[in-house]
Design a binder for these strands. Structure first.
Lengths: 190, 190
DNA sequence: GAGGAAACGGAGCGGGTGTTCCGGTACGGG
DNA sequence: CCCGTACCGGAACACCCGCTCCGTTTCCTC
């Protein structure tokens, strides 16, 4: 843990993580390492010394957010209204997608960082199954909808970050609403 | 038109277009020019002589398909059932997305080739407005749905090609169904 | 079939990125 | 306060990309 001894090294490590958090949020986990180093005000060699692989850096940046995600999932499962729980997760996912590109890349496993949070992604996936099953039993879902439909929706939302940023926010929100309506069992506005 | 005189040059031009069609369909209109040249069995200089810019090549490859698209749009507008017309366009878009990545990139203007078919994209957009308006008047759409919701859906479907190919096909189809359900005014399976 | 123009193709330039090497810097224990 | 060493950072290597230059090949005409 505290293998780093000198104070400047420790401070630099912190600066790298902070810079990577901003950079990855804006440009995804595939953002250039030089850009992260530049934003942190250090050289790229220093970055590589602290984090030998990109996955190490991604892990350090997202560990806390991924945990927070899991907590939201468990809270949604405990919601007394199954549909509200599921809809909240989907809306939260869309919201997060708008201002943090990195986290969803990891959750969906589309980046090279797929293996970093393998355990957490499995739990995330299992939780989603539970959420959908609960909503289905409660009659909140359209007939025939399963967890893979929800995943397709989440993937669609996440993929929209490929668009130019000024368009993506509005489109992500709109697509989220359409998908919620498409999953739901009745036609009242969700 | 027939400014190309020598037979070998004409044959090479054809081979470039064929190779570009395959390459762009698989990897999008941003695919490496070297890859197109390699697939055509010629050097990159020859490719650039026939098509000085990437947009020239994209134009030559997609002109016919874009026209066919416009024809489908007009046919959908003429459909006696407004919902069937709109749903057919969305399903066709998803189907096309699965086996040809290039065409939808141009239609949505997400690539660098946005300006190539500017005229056709405008017509496409106007046709979509008409389709949606017709469906809305016929009561086939959920309350509050507008053409931008449909566009958000199309963008979501198109963006899914970022996924690894073996996943994208199934997910695209699923998302298409969810979106159709989300746009439609009642809950019967569309 | 010989000559010249048309066309070809690979080497190469400029720019970008991931990753490593090594001479220089400055922290901190003594 | 001093010096060893942990640490730093820019230069550099290897690769991929768009695009161009120029020596070589091939076609077509006469």
């Amino acid at each position: 843990m505290s293998r780093i001894r000198r104070a400047d090294a420790l401070a630099n490590r912190e600066r790298v993580v902070a810079a990577a958090r901003e950079t990855f949020a804006a440009a995804g986990v595939g953002a250039p390492m030089r850009e992260v180093a530049r934003r942190a005000g250090i050289g790229v060699a220093t970055l590589y010394r602290h984090f030998p692989t990109r996955d190490d850096l991604v892990g350090a940046v997202l560990a806390r957010q991924v945990d927070e995600c899991g907590r939201q999932m468990r809270a949604a499962i405990s919601d007394t209204d199954p549909w509200r729980g599921l809809a909240g997760i989907i809306r939260g996912f869309a919201e997060r997608q708008i201002h943090d590109r990195a986290l969803n890349e990891v959750l969906l496993g589309s980046g090279s960082a797929a293996a970093v949070f393998r355990e957490q992604r499995l739990e995330h996936s299992r939780s989603l199954n539970t959420l959908v099953e609960r909503a289905r039993r409660a009659g909140a879902l359209r007939a025939g909808v399963d967890a893979d439909d929800v995943r397709a929706g989440l993937l669609g939302i996440a993929s929209l970050r490929q668009l130019p940023p000024e368009r993506s926010a509005a489109v992500i929100t709109k697509l989220g609403d359409v998908i919620l309506a498409g999953l739901r069992g009745d036609t009242r506005t969700p």
